[in-house]
């Protein structure tokens, strides 16, 4: 396959950055998109050029580290996958592929396609846990959790923190990410003790980090590799109002 890549290159946070063009001739359909980038990078090394910096780790769609905007879509043209799960067979010979980093004020570019997503960690820091220490747990089956509750908590908990929701959202809202975490814990009996504090503090931190507000375009749930539903955001709003009234 012959592919023309148009890739965002930016030396550092202060650099202005620009799209640069690279043509690669010897790609195959079996390659994953990231392997195509690996391949391009090896060619760049041999040409004595600096490689394109991009993030990746597990390469099986679970760690959430990879993620770039490909041809105008977070994680590429296919719905609900990660960048590492995208394969070159989804493109045609001769295609031009635009590759850009996640764009959001709260995700500043570090270099090329790598952005800083530590804002997510700080949201987590503000309540995405249950405040009990190791060693103080009661017997696991002492507190039965109905299957439906466990399942809905699991649906929300499956978020891998890749940031595609923020990247694709026109407002760079982190509502899907934050709500998934809140609903995971607040749905479970273990999370009840801190439910109001959790929702208030995590949503407040979301604003402090500079994420925009949700306007329900629904783009996030289409790009989310874990199919997390936008209904979570509505649920978070309900919880926040409840917390404001009762908390």
């Amino acid at each position: 396959m012959k592919i023309k890549f148009k890739i965002w290159r930016q030396e550092g946070p202060e650099d202005k950055g620009a799209i640069k063009e690279y043509t690669v001739n010897d790609l195959t359909e079996e390659m994953s998109f990231l392997e195509a980038l690996d391949h391009l990078n090896e060619q760049l090394v041999l040409k004595n050029e600096e490689v394109i910096a991009f993030e990746h780790d597990c390469r099986e769609g679970i760690c959430g580290q990879c993620g770039v905007f490909i041809n105008g879509r977070a994680h590429g043209p296919i719905n609900n996958i990660t960048t590492c799960q995208l394969h070159m067979r989804s493109f045609n010979d001769g295609d031009t592929i635009f590759v850009e980093p996640w764009r959001a004020k709260s995700f500043p570019v570090i270099k090329d396609l790598i952005v800083d997503r530590s804002a997510f960690d700080r949201i987590i820091e503000h309540g995405a846990f249950i405040s009990t220490n190791t060693g103080s747990a009661p017997e696991a089956n002492a507190l039965p959790i109905p299957k439906a509750v466990a399942e809905s908590a699991m649906d929300a908990a499956s978020c891998i923190g890749c940031g595609a929701c923020v990247a694709t959202c026109k407002n760079s809202s982190a509502a899907l990410f934050t709500s998934a975490k809140i609903n995971h814990l607040n749905n479970l009996p273990q999370g009840k003790a801190e439910e109001h504090k959790r929702v208030e503090e995590m949503t407040a931190q979301m604003d402090i980090e500079g994420f925009g507000s949700c306007t329900f375009t629904g783009a996030c749930e289409v790009e989310c590799p874990e199919n997390i539903s936008i209904v979570n955001i509505a649920e978070m709003h309900a919880r926040l109002m409840k917390a404001k009234i009762l908390g």
């Binding site: 148009k6 965002w8 799209i19 905007f69 041809n71 105008g72 879509r73 043209p77 719905n79 635009f98 850009e100 764009r103 694709t168 026109k170 375009t217 629904g218 783009a219 289409v222 790009e223």
Partner: peptide
């Protein structure tokens, strides 16, 4: 974004 296909999502 330089290219953004919002119509697809």
């Amino acid at each position: 974004y330089v290219v953004n296909r919002t119509n697809e999502n």
